[in-house]
């Protein structure tokens, strides 16, 4: 089981370093996850209302965005466009990146936005990738699969992942070092070739802990589906070429004779 934990140093760092999973496209693929309980919001991107009345636990996107730096402002749903935002962040988006912006609570319960890089590439045949992202106001947790700790010591706002055989797993989240679930257990589909991202959201103190699931598929680089050549458009056929040439010669000859006959 492959486990990778990424520490996010600063907002936007991940987007800048994101692997170019679909690098042949100039645009980035960006999704947004709402992980703050009981708070519908409006999301503005570059001062344009992009997600209206965006509900907790909802997943928006993916949007295909040109590379650039985006100003993301989150306001309470229905608030005026010039009200002070609840969360305000500047997110650099690089070409080819596949990222999810998560509006969530910090460990201490403050609203924030964290960008995560998604990477559904390189998953072996018959397997799917499960990525768990700790975006809840809660201390370090362990992720239990089938009741057994599988990913341990995960803290907000970090992630851990594992490639697992396709199928259904029973996943739960427990405080680090314990096996008593604080979220779940819940059945999570592990789909072949798909990155299934599970977000722990909400607040332990407010008893609003929950899971949000997003799936990301790898985009192939192209499609080669023939090496016979029989479907290529036919060239101008030889008989037609011969006929055209003969007619052209005929026209030239008759034109010449006609000109001579006129003399």
């Amino acid at each position: 089981m492959r486990i990778r934990t990424t520490v996010l140093m600063a907002l936007g760092l991940v987007l800048m370093l994101a692997p170019a999973a679909v690098a042949q496209e100039g645009n980035a693929s960006v999704s947004v996850v709402h992980g703050i309980p009981a708070t519908p919001v409006d999301v503005y991107v570059n001062d344009a209302l992009t997600l209206e009345d965006f509900q907790p636990s909802d997943v928006a996107g993916p949007l295909s965005l040109p590379a650039g730096t985006y100003q993301v402002d989150v306001r309470a749903a229905g608030a005026a466009a010039d009200d002070d935002p609840v969360i305000s962040a500047s997110a650099p988006v690089t070409a080819g990146a596949n990222a999810t912006l998560v509006a969530h609570l910090t460990e201490s319960g403050e609203p924030t936005i964290t960008p995560f890089a998604n990477d559904p590439s390189g998953i072996a045949d018959g397997q799917g990738r499960v990525t768990v992202r700790h975006t809840a106001a809660a201390p370090a947790v362990d992720v239990l699969v089938g009741g057994t700790p599988a990913l341990t010591g995960l803290t907000n706002p970090n992630e851990a992942e594992a490639d697992l055989p396709a199928g259904t797993i029973e996943a739960a989240v427990a405080l680090a070092g314990t096996t008593e679930p604080v979220i779940g257990p819940a059945d999570v589909d592990v789909e072949e070739g798909v990155q299934t991202i599970v977000y722990a959201i909400g607040s332990a103190e407010d008893a609003t802990l929950d899971l949000v699931v997003q799936t990301v598929s790898h985009t192939p680089t192209g499609i080669d589906s023939g090496d016979g050549g029989a479907a290529a458009p036919a060239a101008f056929p030889a008989w037609a070429l011969a006929l055209t040439a003969a007619a052209g010669l005929g026209a030239a000859a008759s034109g010449l004779r006609l000109a001579r006959a006129r003399r």
Binding site: V33, L51, F54, V59, A60, G61, D210, L211, V213
Partner: peptide, 9 residues
Amino acid sequence: GVPVRSGRL
């Protein structure tokens, strides 16, 4: 233009 769905299990 922005597809939105529930992420609840």
